[in-house]
Structures are given as C-alpha cells and as structure tokens.
Design a protein around this nucleic acid. Structure first.
Length: 658
DNA sequence: TCACGGAATATTTTT
DNA sequence: TATTCCGTGA
C-alpha cells in the first residue's frame, strides 16, 4: 500500500483495500470524492470507523496530511481516530491537523490576533477561572441593602456562556431561560459588561471567547479567511449534532476556498442544547450546502434486536429528525426490563444484587454500567456499592485540572508569565494564613501599582510570615534561566506545607502534583504548558489519577452525558422516574423535553446485550413540592412484548434494612 | 478582617 | 457528595 505512486493505480487499489470490512453506506462515505457530505450515523453504526477509513484513504491517495482538518469535541476523540488511521495506513496519519474547535481557534487566534485587535499573549480562563473572576466582580458590585442577592457565580457563568453560545444577548437569555431572575436582569447585564471589560484588561479569553473571536476573525478579515481556508483541502467534523451556531459559522468560513467538508453526527443523539448546541445545525446542513450529499448509516453493530426494538420506539416520538431505523444482524437477546422498586434504597439494593448476579455468571465489572440523568442520582447507590465492596468508578464530574490543589499550583505558575493575572494572585494570596479577600485585594493592588511584575511583591511593606515565604519563592525563580519543570518544582516545594494544612487527603493530592511535574517536564515553555492545561488537560478524572494501576476491573457509574459514544455489555438506567428523567426542569418547555427524550435514547443505545431501567415507586421533590410516582413517560407506554415490567417490594430490601 | 462550622442546596458539563 | 453561602466569635 505504501509504495504506490501511480495515481490511477492508487485510486483503484485503495478502492478495494479501503472497502474491506465496510458496509455499502460506510464505503460510500469513505469514498465520497469532493464536495460537502453529511453522514447521519445512527448509534453504534460504525461512525468512527468510517471517519478513520476516510482519513486513511485521503492520505493514501496523496493528500498532504496537514491539509486535512479533523475537528472533534475532545482531544481524546481526535487522538484515537488518528491512531486508528495510523494503524490502517502509516505514520503519515499522525500529521493530520486535528483537535477540538477550541484548540484550533486558539492556534489561529495566536497567529492572527492582531487582525481582530487582540493581543496574542492572551491567557485562557477555564470554567473555574471564569467563575472566580465573575465571583470577584459579583462581590465588588455593591448592591443596596435589602436587595436580593445576585445569583451564584456559577449561575451567572451559565447565563453568560449561554448567551455567547446561542449568540443572544444576556438580557434575552435571562428573560427566556431564567425567568425567575428577570427582576435582576439589569444588574446582571451590568455585571456581564464588567466581566467583559475585565477580560479585556487582563488579556483573558474564556472558552466561549475563543470561538467568538475566531468567528469574528474569519468573518471580518477576508485575507485571513482566505489564507486559513486555503490551507485545508478536506475538513471533517465529528459529533456535528453538538455544535453550536458559532461553530457552524466557523465551519462555513473555513470552506471559503474548498467545499470539501464532511460532517458526521446523529441528530437523535444531540444532548448539549442546554449549553448552546443547536441540533438544527445538522438538519440545516443541506440548506447551507445545497450540493451536499447525505448518507445514512443504519446498520447497528452494537446491540441485540430486542434492545434496538426499544430504542427505535423511544426515538420515534422525536418531533423533528432524520428518520432512521436501526437494525442489526445479531440474533437473540433478552428483552429489556423496567423495574419498579419500593423506594430509592430498594432500587440501589436491587441494582447491586443484579450486578453481583452478573459477575457471578462471569460478566466483567467493567462491562457493566449504571447510567443516570444527574450526578447526584447515584449517591445512594454509591453507598450501597461501597457497603458490598464492589469497586466502581464514577466518570464525568471533576477533572484533574479542576481540583483545587492542581489549580493552586497552576496559579503560582501563571503569575510568572502574566504578573497581573488578578485571579491567580487572589488565589495564591488567599492560601496564605491571615490573608483573606480584603488582604488579597490590597496586596494585588500594590503589586499592580509597582508595575514591576512579580517583583512588585518585594516592594510590599507587610509583616506576614506567609507572604515572606511567598516572596522567597519568587526570589528563587528566575523565569529566564529556569526550565518550566524547575519552576514547577519550586512552586510545589513551597506549596506542600499549605497542601498538608488544607486537605486531609494530602498524600493522594501530593501524588497528583508529582504527576503534574511529570507533565511539565515535557515542556520547554511555560506558556505552552499553561495553554495546554486549560485547553487539553490530561484525560483523567480527579479520583482516578494515580490509582488506575490498582484496580482495573471496575463498575462504571456515569451520567448519560458522559456516556456518549461508549458502550457496555450490560446497562442499568436508574431513576427512570418521571420528574427525574425527564427532569422536572424540562417539563415546561417542549424543546427541553425533546432533548430529554434524546437523552433517554442515548442511554438505551449504550447497551449491547442487556438493558434494565429502574425507578423508585415514589419520590418527593422538595424544590417543587411534588410527589413523583410515575415511570418515565418515555418508556412507560412501551408494550410488554418489547419491555418486561416488574415490581419489587420490601423483600428485596429487607436483607439490608437491619 | 479572618477563620471556622453548620446549613442549605443541587440538572446535565466534551472546551 | 461536595460546594457554596452565611453567621459567629476572635
């Protein structure tokens, strides 16, 4: 395969080579020539395979790898695809331009910052940083006594982010999606303006800004648009159903020169509308590119027919979609089940028992998953699992870089590159004993006034042992001569005593820091490290970190969102209770309900062989004062020959009640 | 002004 | 579960 040079011969040979192990629809997508292409890939239909084969095919036919752009939603996804393509073909596939929308935007913005009036040395705020900055502004904004307190910083960040992602004004978003805050709309808008101003002053871009500014760059500068779009002959996008309007617009500009864009997605699996994703993007693709070809992948390689029968019924209720009907050649398989449990704990006990049965029959724990609508739905189950000594890992939730101790160390490094990084200074200073918000502010202001970078710290007149230690730290760091890892080492050395004082589980966290230093060693420039940590953090969750080697075979607990794209032999969906799933919050809004439905679809299509829904017979919702006592409306009406229904009572739980 | 403790609260969270 | 907010006492 590698040595073919004759073009015709190559095309011919590859046609048979790349056709292997693909079905007709997949092959058509892989061999699609130029022009826009929309692939509607049903769950488990070999979407990744199709994408990787296409990458390999293009490279094999002599397309320069760097002229292929593969955009995905996680770094992991793009790495995996390029690795698979490399296995199919050769090393060249590793040089394909790939990454997330955000990392791509970052790259291009650094290059062309001046064209939109940005400075190229911007720092990236991750969600926590953004919230910290918003929190500061929130505190500063003095509101008259007796007035209602402003929403929590995390709510504020949600509102701002939603406005950016949906290309709407903050006020609009409040009036439509946060009606209960409409009285404070003006105050929130003002706060938003402060936030934007602060970001400008500090050369900060948050995640949303990366997209917003990149879009602006492409739109406003025809020269840049031409340059960038000409450098990519083929563009491929994964999970297109979860892109938002800005991303769709970015893509449109990227095809300014070449129209060779292939997007892959499944409108039925669009579950990020709450964050601004617009599943209309995928519906409207043919309108945006009238010459687009549409290929559907409907053969499912994952689930048994009884499971597909159920998922087909579930998704049939979706109002607007590319209709598709999944089928499989796999035969046999048990009917999915719906189990009514007496109460939450009975549900947990039941699931635990079933899991024990499965493992007794030889199913590996890592082949079993428990899925749920919201993170806290699994609390009771987690307790029950621990009690029974079943190892599990909860995915989603907090990321490595979001944990406090990592952020602390990163903050110390950040002020080295950007000495006026207010967020980081406040964070660093407040770690010091006797320094609170007020003290941090005072110190920051004098650093700023000194105008001498980190050295501003030395000019301070302050008797505080902690501050003195911090000074020592920065006196010992000479950014020009030291390697990033050395600076990191110094910071960690300084920070360890604080860590010990702050956290009971400091030994575990100390190991994380070692790991962080390990990563740091790969970098020659601190700035690059900091950018990567914001954009492409190591793909480990906080609890996981260094314990991965201990137990491999663990049960998976996951929110449905985090389960997207994954599959297991046996899947339990707990809290399939109307009001929990679909969530009460979605009930007032038809679009939200549609998303809940798709979410149920995603959950059910994760299962290969067995699928079980459970719900407690009733639960009281305190926030709304409502008694929930119906199974999820998405599966309640499914006929008995598709879904087995059973109740279990106290007998199941009685063993553990005492 | 800071530190601490207890109470209240909570949808989902690829970047 | 874990985070955030708020009141209290030093």
């Amino acid at each position: 395969m590698q040595k073919l040079s004759d073009k015709n011969c190559l095309g011919h040979a590859s046609a048979s080579r790349w056709g292997e192990a693909l079905n007709d629809a997949q092959r058509a997508a892989v061999h699609h020539a130029d022009g826009p292409l929309l692939v509607i890939a049903g769950a488990g239909s070999g979407k990744t395979r199709t994408l990787t084969h296409r990458v390999a095919r293009l490279v094999a036919e002599g397309v320069h790898p760097a002229a292929i752009l593969l955009l995905t939603f996680t770094r992991k996804a793009s790495q995996e695809m390029l690795q698979r393509a490399t296995r199919l073909l050769d090393q060249r596939c590793e040089r394909v331009s790939g990454g997330t929308f955000h990392s791509f935007a970052n790259l291009k913005l650094r290059q062309y910052a001046a064209h939109v009036g940005l400075s190229a040395d911007f720092a990236i705020l991750d969600r926590t940083d953004a919230e910290a900055l918003i929190g500061l502004i929130r505190k500063e904004s003095d509101r008259a006594a007796g007035q209602r307190p402003l929403p929590r910083k995390n709510t504020l960040a949600d509102i701002f982010s939603r406005a950016a992602n949906k290309v709407r004004s903050v006020e609009d978003v409040i009036l439509s999606d946060y009606v209960h805050l409409s009285e404070q709309a003006d105050a929130i808008v003002t706060l938003f303006e402060y936030y934007a101003q602060r970001k400008r002053e500090h050369h900060f871009l948050d995640y949303d800004d990366l997209l917003v500014w990149f879009q602006r760059l492409l739109q406003d500068s025809s020269e840049v648009r031409r340059r960038i779009s000409a450098s990519y002959r083929y563009i491929m996008v994964d999970e297109y159903q979860d892109t938002n309007r800005i991303q769709a617009d970015i893509l449109y500009h990227l095809t300014d020169t070449n129209h060779n864009i292939m997007v892959v997605g499944d409108d039925s699996q669009s579950i990020y509308a709450f964050r601004g994703a617009n599943f209309r993007n995928i519906i409207d693709f043919p309108k945006l590119f009238p010459e687009a070809r549409v290929i559907g992948l409907e053969e499912n390689y994952r689930s048994t027919q009884p499971i597909l029968n159920l998922t087909n019924i579930v998704i049939e209720r979706a109002r607007e979609k590319y209709s598709k009907h999944l089928f499989t050649r796999k035969s046999g398989g048990a009917l999915p089940e719906l189990i009514e449990a007496e109460d939450e704990n009975t549900q947990s006990v039941y699931v635990v028992e079933q899991i024990q049965n499965l493992t007794a029959r030889g199913v590996r724990l890592e082949q079993i998953a428990v899925l749920f609508r919201a993170g806290f739905h699994s609390f009771d189950l987690e307790i029950e699992l621990s009690r029974q000594g079943i190892p599990f890992i909860k995915v989603g939730g907090f990321k490595f870089t979001e944990s406090a101790h990592i952020k602390d160390v990163l903050a110390h490094l950040r002020v080295i590159t950007n000495p006026y990084d207010r967020i980081s200074w406040y964070r660093i200073l407040q770690l010091i004993e006797k320094v609170g918000p007020r003290g941090a502010q005072r110190i920051y202001e004098s650093i700023l006034a000194a105008g001498a970078g980190v050295n501003g710290l030395f000019a301070l007149k302050l008797k505080n042992a902690g501050v003195e230690r911090l000074r020592e730290l920065y006196r010992s760091i000479h950014a020009k001569e030291m390697a990033p890892a050395e600076m990191g080492g110094a910071v960690v050395h300084y920070y360890l005593p604080i860590l010990k004082q702050l956290f009971d589980d400091h030994p575990k966290r100390a190991k994380d820091l070692e790991q962080l230093l390990g990563i740091l060693e790969r970098y020659r420039r601190l700035e690059h490290f900091l950018t990567d940590m914001a954009l492409e953090p190591p793909n480990i969750s906080a609890e996981e970190t260094l314990f991965t080697d201990e137990i491999q075979d663990r049960l998976v607990l996951s929110t449905i969102h985090s389960a997207k794209g994954l599959e297991w032999q046996c899947v339990f969906v707990i809290w399939a209770l109307d009001g929990r799933f679909p969530s009460l919050y979605a009930m007032t809004n038809e679009e939200d309900m549609e998303e809940e439905l798709r979410l149920m679809y995603v959950a059910a299509t994760r299962a290969r062989e067995s699928l079980c829904f459970t719900y407690p017979r009733q639960a009281y919702d305190r926030s709304q004062g409502i008694l929930l006592n119906r199974p999820s409306r998405f599966i309640d009406m499914i006929p008995d020959d598709i879904l087995t229904k059973r109740s279990i009572g106290f007998c199941g739980a009685s063993q553990l009640r005492w």
